[in-house]
Design a protein around this nucleic acid. Sequence first.
DNA 1: AAATAATACGTGACAAGTCATATATTTTCT
DNA 2: AGAAAATATATGACTTGTCACGTATTATTT
Lengths: 173, 173
Amino acid sequence: MTTKIKSNANQIRSRKEREGLNIFSRLPAVYAASRTQSRNFLELAGGLSVVEWRTLWDLAEAGPLTIRDLAAIQRADHSLLSRALPEMRKKGYVTMQRDARDGRQTIVELTEQGRAAYDTAAPVMAKRRAALKEVFSDTEIREFAGFLDRLEDFLRVPAEDLLAGQMAQEDTQ
Amino acid sequence: MTTKIKSNANQIRSRKEREGLNIFSRLPAVYAASRTQSRNFLELAGGLSVVEWRTLWDLAEAGPLTIRDLAAIQRADHSLLSRALPEMRKKGYVTMQRDARDGRQTIVELTEQGRAAYDTAAPVMAKRRAALKEVFSDTEIREFAGFLDRLEDFLRVPAEDLLAGQMAQEDTQ
DNA sequence: AAATAATACGTGACAAGTCATATATTTTCT
DNA sequence: AGAAAATATATGACTTGTCACGTATTATTT
């Protein structure tokens, strides 16, 4: 029975190793680790949530934006912002007002308090990016980002197209 | 005012571009796209959820496993499995029984029905991986996985350590 | 101008994931 | 052996994210 247990342990280890090269199965863990580290940094930098930080950052960098713009910049679904923003308004970080020119749109703008929260968090988050730069060179970052670009392109090809034939993705070029 | 709008559009575009090189802010979108594509593939391959698919795969490859083993292989929190498994048992995919040797552990085992669900999904999911291989060479996959390894190492360094000084991560080597 | 289509946003329902805490069982220490 | 520490699992509360659908507003067709 020892051998049975041992072989099982080996099975587990080998399965874990083989999965190391499976990009798809790596992403959840990498992303989860990133989110956790973000949360920890933000905890030390004023207590913003990840969505709040991203939004304040975008508003501080690009000025007043519509919900749609924010979602596009963050490559996120508008519903995520749509739900987060009223809470941020309640906290005094942003104002939201209907666009006079296009009554469908909501213009989101940083308040002084939002700017202050951003100013508190920004240097801490900048240190995080600086720390990453000690682990990856500029060239490597560009290569890494290039891989992510290509992966993202692949991931946006509908499953049906990929299954239809291995030649399918040629169409997207 | 046209200029104002236009400059804003440029701001947005430039912000989006600059964020392209921010690995941290790329991860949510890439992961989300991967999960969505997974879901679509699984939809076409019998209707498993992502967690179910991962679990059936691990059990089919490595034999009966404890919840802890499953979580370790998937690099996920055990609570995720702990919550998903009773539902999978209800669906007839797995059995769960307390380990006689260690009463704390639960041994999860594939049923015939679970095996059948795996056999239905597996070839479809294999095609997905094959399709990826047409976009990334073996060498590139290894490079990509290497980047992910290094990033994951970085992400597991506590925020306090990274903030304490740029030299901190040397300790982990 | 009226009908139709497109767009922006809100919202309900769900999936995946985290953390903290509780409980039962084993292991380890003395 | 008994006390203390470690481990495996369950569970509540929360965040991030998706999709589908509804509603209001604007743009386009005819």
